[in-house]
């Protein structure tokens, strides 16, 4: 199908974009990569009266490291994040996550900020960013505020953003020393949305015990919530295959509420959650000990 008519603005600067949002926020939509918005418009599931195309705001396309923090601009394309040496070096969890997002043609166009703003529970980045304790920068003519990932993702396709706000960048700590990571998912075909996915990091402390374990799921509920029961079961324990298995069972049983849909039943998703969490934790343990990369 074809999209409904709309009025098109293409601001050349951030200030111009924020002024347009302040004026039209309620009836306007930001157009970033368009890889979620335009399909929805083609189906007329979305019929915004106004589109504010931010693709000319090249200042929003960057990947930087400042004082141990990674900063990624909202307009940075997925394929740039995927290939960036700084991401491979300082944010290996993200580097491992990126190739799972859609197909190359979509990664060439889709943006980092668009994926976060869209807040699709089947998307990889919201889970990976929640695990990394990311903070999300929102700008408007009223000013700037930073929101922590758990407060940002409030529901299905719903975020804490106000209609006049623009997501401008995402910041998160580079992966600390003695920290292992793993992203793993199961999809019907490479690049399709995951039936279930897991992002995990495990930091080891004194005596090689787990100091800080974090687990977050893709396609397991309405928001990318941390698996707090499983994390509690891991912290303070010596990493082992048995521990990974026990924590995975806790995560699948207590930490998620997966949906049943045409792609997979809730029961199958719980099964995947058990198996994938166990695998992710074992991989993260080995990487934290420096045994593999």
């Amino acid at each position: 199908m074809k999209p409904a008519p709309f009025k098109y603005f293409r601001p050349e600067s951030l200030d111009e974009a924020l002024a347009l949002l302040a004026k039209h926020g309620d009836e306007a939509k930001v157009l970033a990569g368009g890889q979620s918005l335009i399909p929805a418009m083609n189906f007329r599931l979305a019929q915004p009266a106004i589109l504010i195309d931010i693709n000319r705001l090249s200042a929003l396309s960057f990947i930087e490291e400042k004082r141990g923090q990674m900063h990624i601009g909202a307009l940075t394309r997925h394929s740039m994040v995927e290939r960036h040496p700084l991401v491979a070096q300082k944010a290996p969890l993200l580097a491992e996550t990126m190739p799972n997002i859609a197909h190359v043609q979509i990664r060439n166009r889709g943006t980092f900020g668009g994926s976060i703003a869209h807040a699709d529970p089947a998307a990889e980045l919201p889970a990976a960013m929640t695990v990394r304790g990311a903070r999300i920068c929102l700008r408007s003519t009223r000013g700037e505020r930073w929101v922590d990932a758990p407060q940002f993702f409030v529901g299905l396709l719903t975020t804490a953003m106000e209609p006049d706000e623009l997501l401008t960048e995402v910041a998160f700590d580079e992966l600390p020393k003695k920290t292992g990571w793993c992203f793993v998912e199961v999809a019907r075909r490479h690049g399709d949305y995951a039936l279930l996915g897991v992002a995990a990091t495990v930091r080891l402390g004194m005596m090689g015990k787990v100091k800080d374990a974090r687990i977050c799921f893709v396609s397991a509920g309405e928001t990318p919530a941390l698996a707090t029961n499983a994390q509690d079961a891991l912290n303070g324990q010596a990493p082992s295959a048995e521990l990974a298995k026990a924590a995975a069972q806790i995560a699948a049983a207590q930490d998620i509420d997966p949906p049943s849909d045409i792609h997979a039943s809730a029961r199958f998703r719980r099964h995947l959650a058990t198996k994938l969490t166990e695998r992710a934790l074992n991989t993260a343990f080995a990487r934290a000990r420096g045994e593999t990369r």
Binding site: Y8, Q105, N108, R109
Partner: peptide, 21 residues
Amino acid sequence: GACTVLLDGESVRSCIIFAVQ
């Protein structure tokens, strides 16, 4: 993927990009 074209040398889906962009 039937509509794939190159935009500034990179493959993209032409059905989910507006010509005006």
